[in-house]
């Protein structure tokens, strides 16, 4: 079955990719399967300088999900270009680089550096990290700031720019429309929801950062609802994510309005999850009456026959 899809001018051989922050820079997972099998790879967020991230504990399991507060630990964009991108250049799989920063200037600087790397085929603007004190989600919860940042980054890149939206807002469509007006080529949604877990013995938050981002199957219904809402208002390509663990989940995201689907937390439970989903996708699509990925898209985006 033909699983190929084109998102914002970026051709993918299938719609499945690991989500940023859940796959490092690919090296660890390359020991399990050939990364060429993936539709794309969204690599860990890059900031201008190296960041140490938050104190530990940084993760906690919750029912059908997990909280994380890594805090954007990364070696900095120069080091990523020098140490991590050459490895990814061994693969044909398109690499989507996630960009974070404290200020608009930092985002712009990191974006322009990554824009010059041939191995990077698209950028993902992270305006939705809930685990850092400065930058991140503050740009993703205010339509005006989201517009300005997207506009500024768009000015320094010729590559497709996806903006990763935060679900921690009253109306996610407002942000989606703001970044569309600013020139975004696509949307990634959703990032994690801010949550908290208490340690009953210590009578305090379990994560050192106190709060963390909730991910995993627990948030999937929220992701589906938000993608569905945003799809009613824009034709921008959407990379859907939030609790995907199976090919059925992928179909659900596609029907809700996503054009491609990223897998996050499930990579920790099963390192082969992306490969397995890609293998199972044709049978799952057939089971529900589709003979290609394009047919699914027609049902959801172009002809919203499943409108509620």
């Amino acid at each position: 079955m033909n699983l190929s899809v084109n998102i914002a001018g970026l051709p993918l051989k299938n719609p499945i990719m690991p989500a940023s922050g859940c796959f490092g820079f690919g090296k660890e997972f390359s020991k399990f399967y050939d990364l060429n099998e993936l539709g794309a790879i969204m690599i860990k967020a890059a900031t201008q300088e190296a960041r140490l991230g938050n104190p530990t504990p940084r993760v906690a399991e919750t029912s059908s999900g997990m909280l994380n507060a890594i805090g954007l630990q990364n070696p900095g964009v120069d080091q990523i270009i020098k140490e991590d991108l050459p490895f990814l250049d061994n693969y044909q799989t398109p690499i989507i680089a996630n960009i974070a920063g404290r200020t608009k200037e930092e985002y712009v600087k990191v974006a322009s550096q990554l824009d010059q790397q041939p191995v990077i085929k698209a950028l993902e603007l992270n305006i939705s990290c809930p685990n850092v004190k400065e930058g991140g989600v503050q740009f993703g919860t205010d339509p005006t700031l989201a517009f300005e940042l997207t506009n500024a980054v768009k000015a320094v890149t010729t590559k497709p720019l996806f903006v990763k939206l935060s679900p921690n807002v009253t109306n996610i469509a407002d942000i989606a429309l703001a970044v569309e007006q600013a020139g975004a080529d696509g949307l990634s949604m959703i990032n994690t929801l801010t949550g908290m877990k208490l340690d009953l013995s210590g009578k305090k938050p379990l994560l050192a950062n106190q709060t963390g981002g909730l991910s995993g199957p627990a948030i999937k219904p929220i992701a589906i609802r938000m993608i569905y809402e945003v799809r009613q208002q824009t034709q921008l390509p959407i990379i859907g994510m939030g609790g995907v663990t199976s090919a059925e989940d992928v179909l659900e995201f596609l029907l809700a309005g996503a054009n491609a689907v990223a897998v996050g937390t499930a990579n920790f439970q099963d390192p082969y999850i992306c490969q397995n989903i890609i293998l199972q996708l044709p049978d799952t699509l057939s089971k529900y009456g589709y003979s290609s990925l394009k047919e699914v898209m027609f049902d959801s985006c172009v002809n919203p026959s499943i409108s509620l």
């Binding site: 140490l52 530990t56 504990p57 993760v59």
Partner: peptide
């Protein structure tokens, strides 16, 4: 430490080192 992936990709279980070697 509380772990995520267990293979070094998620950066959940880190420990600070001496001599500014980071985590």
């Amino acid at each position: 430490e509380r772990m995520g992936c267990g293979i070094g990709a998620c950066l959940a279980c880190v420990c600070q080192t001496r001599c500014n070697k980071g985590y």
